[in-house]
């Protein structure tokens, strides 16, 4: 029954118009946009930048999505090419039909353009700043407290621990003798946290559960002589030992660095919980 009720909306007056010549091209444009999104996804998969946007476990799903979208686009084009252009008696149903004015055309162009034209950028200091890292020394530092519950303290070999493992292991008991003085070697990017003592930087990483929208920043302060001229977002491999300091009345584990090696941003810049 509802199929025959007409909505009272301003574009009702288009209702009985036969599609104009230029509107016959709309399905083609539609297919190109759908195919464009599929192509954008496949480009991201191929050039290895997909991990900057979504968790690596979704890579096969996104690749499949790209392929299916391309196939859909081809199917629509083929169907359009084979369809008899005069054979559309069914005008009762074309309400809401795509027109050149539909915002969908522009909207679906946005992800294609942003995906193909804007250089891929991992979440970094700008995102940290947006999350309020400046004021509090990292919301992420506080929020990761609870991740420590689920994380295992018994990882076999501390030399293979990531920054996240170390943050989890030191957050509740930074002065635990089992971690204090341990040798540590981790990678991360520089975050010049203004709440840290002079000469220290925050070695940070984003922890992503699903996509870049849920990234949490974690970090450990690094004390070294040579941190002053390091710029935000510079990736480093830091080795040294775990030390202790008190900041704002709270004990925290820090890295007493023996060497800071600038490195390229890893292909998978995020850590996964």
């Amino acid at each position: 029954m509802h199929e025959h009720e007409h909505e009272h909306s301003p574009d009702c007056d288009h209702h009985d118009h036969a599609p104009t010549a230029s509107e016959r091209w709309l399905p083609v444009v539609q297919a190109l946009l759908i195919g464009g999104i599929g192509a954008m996804l496949l480009v991201k998969v191929m050039n290895g930048t997909l991990p900057l946007y979504v968790h690596v476990r979704y890579t096969p799903l996104i690749a499949a999505t790209g392929v299916v979208l391309l196939l859909l686009a081809v199917a629509v084009l083929v169907g359009q090419w084979r369809a008899d252009p005069q054979g559309h008696p069914d005008h009762d149903h074309d309400h809401g039909r795509l027109t050149w004015r539909s915002p969908a055309l522009t909207a679906l162009l946005v992800p294609i353009l942003l995906g193909l034209m804007v250089p891929a950028q991992a979440l970094g200091s700008a995102a940290l700043s947006a999350r309020g890292g400046v004021g509090t020394g990292g919301t992420g530092m506080r929020t990761v407290d609870s991740l420590a519950d689920g994380a295992s303290y018994s990882l076999p070999d501390p030399t293979s621990w990531t920054l996240l493992d170390w943050v989890n292991a030191t957050l509740y008991e930074p002065d635990n003798p089992r971690v204090q003085g341990q040798a540590i070697e981790v990678e991360g990017f520089v975050w010049r946290d203004s709440t840290l003592p002079e000469g220290q930087i925050m070695l940070s990483r984003f922890v992503v559960s699903c996509c870049s929208a849920d990234g949490l920043a974690i970090g450990m302060p690094v004390a070294a002589d040579s941190t002053l001229d390091l710029a935000n977002d510079q990736w480093l491999r830091v080795s040294g030992t775990v030390g202790l300091q008190e900041r704002d009345g709270r004990k925290e584990a820090i890295i007493l660095a023996e060497s800071l090696t600038p490195i390229e941003q890893p292909a998978e810049p995020y850590l996964y919980p």
Binding site: Y53, L61, L114, Q121, L123, A126, A127, S212
Partner: peptide, 26 residues
């Protein structure tokens, strides 16, 4: 430069949500 970085962050978060959502929407 600051605007460029913010735009890059915006793009990364936008594409993260869009790519994820596109797969499940499909």
């Amino acid at each position: 430069a600051a605007l460029g970085q913010l735009f890059g962050t915006f793009t990364t978060i936008f594409l993260g949500i869009f790519i994820e959502a596109a797969a499940f929407l499909l």
